[in-house]
Amino acid sequence: MNTSFEERIVWVNMIALLLALGIYFVVAGSMLRAGVTNLVAYVPLFTIAVVVQVALIAAGSIAAKVLGRADERDERDRLIAWRAEANASWLVGVGILAGISAMVVAVPNVWVAHLLLLSLFLAELLKAALQLLYYRRGF
């Protein structure tokens, strides 16, 4: 197998994030459109999404170990993770600025909270995508 254990783990994390939080945003989006403004109403849904994500990561990590050697992280894995994080962190900054701007114009808290959560979600997704790109393309 030509993928390292760390690369397989990145795939697992990305798929788990995409499935769990992706579904959360689809459902939460429909709740927002329906006018549910109480933030507490989203807590059970978010809790389920996090539990599903953790379960997917656990199952995926076992599968990643079964599929090949479980080597320790080496310098290339660390460098790829650092570079991907550096190139994806701007999305969090954009989310925070958008969140502050939304608060200034008195957008309801529930929208601001989801805007911030969305920026974190997208930043993590971009980080994983960049890691996979760097593993394949090199740098």
Binding site: N2, T3, S4, F5, E6, E7, R69, D71, D74, E75, R76, D77, Y135, R137, G138, F139
Partner: peptide, 22 residues
């Protein structure tokens, strides 16, 4: 040398320049 086989493969293919130590 204490790295993964994929890292050796990347170095050989000039896709990754290792640290001075490696």
């Amino acid at each position: 040398i204490g790295v993964t086989r994929q890292t050796v493969n990347a170095i050989e293919g000039n896709k990754y320049s290792p640290s001075l130590e490696v």
